[in-house]
Design a protein around this nucleic acid. Structure first.
Lengths: 223, 223
DNA sequence: CCAGTATTCGATAGATTTCTTGAATGATAC
DNA sequence: GTATCATTCAAGAAATCTATCGAATACTGG
């Protein structure tokens, strides 16, 4: 029965990919990589893991075909190996959200409570940007903004937001975004902006989602 | 830093779902369940696992929210817990295919060589069925056909195909399908039909894919 | 070539999975 | 009530995974 063996072998390979995603740290690394290419030490800093540990996890991701790497000078840069990986990640996120009680509860507790605000779909955001009706604020750290951001967005990391409120037009609607649907930075930003009397809402997604929908991204600068 | 904890907790939950899919046997069970609801002993027979072992795997799938169960008489029937699970499975399959060399090679060796034939997309199949141009053959076992099949398809399991060739109109195109994109039954069927002079092709997917695209299914009978 | 830095490798201990076996639970049929 | 069948639970051995450490490798700049 070569058919049986073929099927088993195939599914074992699929399982390898799933196994690579079966660890919270690796998923976190994957989310960072979905934002942009990064070196091992950056990733280690971002995730709070040791460098050696980060390296090992990255290698597992690479063996599963989820990320690829490139050597430049003394660093190795990792990146997500395709849009289909982002799609897989989102698919996983969606299933988890819908079917696991713990997840919905976590989200309820930490996010939706803060977020009376309905999130904004990408299309809507795009049209408001085109009409010049909104100020788009990227609340991620400056480095992440520099590698890629939504066109026209300005960079104000959450930590700086309070001091830089004067830069924002109080009569214009503000839309904040960060890394993805569950990134808390944007939630906090919106909460604070509303307290200060601004009209603020949250873009329901991050750069990976923006890109997946076929929209352009902008790079460089500390706009 | 409640944000950090929230994120870790969330990703740990996502990881749980991935972990449930990180075993070949569980993926196989999941594929069977994507076809239709089944009892534990059926699944054990289909997968070749012991009943106890099957039960354990099913429980892991249930804890991850991928399947649900229902008790009827002395049996427990399991089913996939939503279309999003099929989507996740397909997403996983796609990433594995695209990025892992071993997988492409496996597929190349066992499937594509047999399949000079281009597979048929669902839309195309549907229109040919409407025009009455094709005979659609379901080559899965009778029981699987009985629980759900593509409307208008007739049931001829691969094992019976050779003896029942006379039932097929030699002037009509034949389209064979089985469980999904990598199910070998349909490949073998098409290969045999072509040898015998029929015009045959393969539908590129199984019932789960058919359903995901919003098409109707038919149940019962041994058409 | 050498010092310094970034990354990977190898080995280890401790935790988790997988599979098997045998017994326990729950529902049906006589 | 008892026998029977489907499923689940429980416990143990073998295999695998995770995190950590120190050492090895590869590159840059001087």
């Amino acid at each position: 029965m070569p058919e049986e063996n073929f099927k088993k072998a195939l599914f074992a390979q699929f399982a390898r990919v799933a196994r690579a995603m079966s660890n919270g740290h690796r998923l976190e690394l994957l989310e960072f990589l979905a934002q942009s290419e990064r070196s091992v030490d950056e990733l280690a800093r971002l995730s709070g893991l040791t460098v050696a540990n980060t390296s090992q996890h990255l290698q597992q991701l690479r063996q599963a075909g989820l990320v690829s790497s490139r050597k430049a000078g003394k660093r190795v840069f990792y990146r997500i190996s395709g849009d289909d990986v982002s799609l897989l990640f989102n698919s996983l996120r969606e299933v988890a959200e819908r079917h696991i009680a713990d997840v919905s509860q976590l989200i309820q507790t930490y996010l939706e409570v803060k977020d009376k605000l309905e999130p904004l779909p990408a299309k809507e955001l795009l049209s408001r940007v085109r009409d010049g009706l909104v100020t788009v604020v990227d609340v991620r750290p400056h480095e992440e903004y520099a590698t890629a951001h939504i066109p026209g967005a300005i960079s104000i990391p959450l930590a700086e937001l309070e001091q830089r409120l004067n830069e924002l037009d109080p009569d214009k609607e503000i839309v904040a975004y960060c890394r993805g649907p569950h990134c808390v930075l944007a939630f906090d930003a919106v909460a604070m902006l509303r307290e200060r009397g601004h009209t603020a809402s949250r873009f329901d997604g991050g750069l990976p989602e923006w890109r997946l929908q076929g929209h352009q991204v902008e790079t460089g600068g500390v706009g």
